[in-house]
Design a binder for these strands. Sequence first.
DNA 1: TGCCAATGTAAACAACTGTTTGAAACAATT
DNA 2: AATTGTTTCAAACAGTTGTTTACATTGGCA
Lengths: 223, 223
Amino acid sequence: MATDSTREKILQAAGEQFANDGFAQATIRAICCKAGVNLAAANYYFGDKERLYIEAVKHARRLREKQAPLPNWTDSTPADQKLAQFVLTLLRRMLCEPGDPWQTRLIIREIMEPTKACEEMVQEAFQPLFQVLIDILRELMPETTPLHTLHHWALSVIGQCFYYRANEKILTMLIDGEELRQQFTVEKLSEHITDVILRGLGHLPPMRRLHPVASSRNTDDPV
Amino acid sequence: MATDSTREKILQAAGEQFANDGFAQATIRAICCKAGVNLAAANYYFGDKERLYIEAVKHARRLREKQAPLPNWTDSTPADQKLAQFVLTLLRRMLCEPGDPWQTRLIIREIMEPTKACEEMVQEAFQPLFQVLIDILRELMPETTPLHTLHHWALSVIGQCFYYRANEKILTMLIDGEELRQQFTVEKLSEHITDVILRGLGHLPPMRRLHPVASSRNTDDPV
DNA sequence: TGCCAATGTAAACAACTGTTTGAAACAATT
DNA sequence: AATTGTTTCAAACAGTTGTTTACATTGGCA
């Protein structure tokens, strides 16, 4: 349809604007101006600002999943390889490679400050993704591992991935710009995060030979 | 002074309101109403909305540091114990125990969407805290460890702590409420995070006996 | 061509916002 | 008691916002 053109233009502009300014501070005027359409067009196509926002979030999430999809694994794919690729994919989505940076920024905004758009996002995307991660970890841990321990480790994975994007601006204030560019690429970060988890689970040799044990913590049953 | 009373009331109300609604959506009218003072009082004491916001953020951060301080360590305190207490303190501050939940919510908002208030926060609080963590990790890792590797591990620590508060509402949608209450306490979370890091660094035995090595990743120099 | 529904436009509306104002109330000092 | 500086208050101001309206334009179809 010819209508798709302006609808799409609004959706794109709204995504960028909402991502940059948030729901409240992004104005329909600015969105329509950026989209190059009339002020009333947004309300004409989407009813009101809230529904426009919800559609923009959905749009961003679908783009993200399409642009950084999970690989197709076979039954024989080793679990540690699946973990590595899962982390890499998660980081790609977070850091928007490939893709426009506004997409993840909008999604993260919605994570931090959930609105009506959040519920759909969790059920359609996060819930299944979380389950995939749990299944991978189950392969890497003893069969008797309780569910909440799997959850703890899953959140350790996601937490580390999430952090680099969420605190982007803080990082640039804590760490030298040149180091950030060279050592905080998607590939290096995903390798580090995978290492932390696999080492912790005993699937890789520890970073250093086991300490002459200055350990003051009790080392009984880890679970 | 008698004036401190209304000033304090505004600061408290502003903190809660900004934490809940964000800078743009929180109105001076709502703040003054909650504080039980006249509308013009906020501008009288703080000049304008932005300066009020900055003061509220400062106020929240100072409260947080006072309510959940780092312990005093001696030269003989083992590094792994310092790490455990560091993580516990960070989580306490994140999850606002003890304290009003709005304090951290306001700080996290500022982290995610930095304004003028952020720079002061990073320099006064985050930068020194980050350095403490780096120093602890340096004790736990080989002397030759490059700086960027220390940074990676430091962010692994902070990232895991950060996640539980930042994605609070998402977690309640992914994990059963009863499990959250029982297994995601500050104590259990800090123990888990400390374990992940110490195991990864080889300061604790791995969770399971070293796998019959289905590992498909190359395991050469970790750094 | 002539009609009609769909789409685009400019202007106006009503509500809400941060901020200012000028006078009143208060407290302390002279 | 008079004066001074500070604090409180209700009202108004000026600007912005989401939304609506009434009117133009378009484009396909009989």
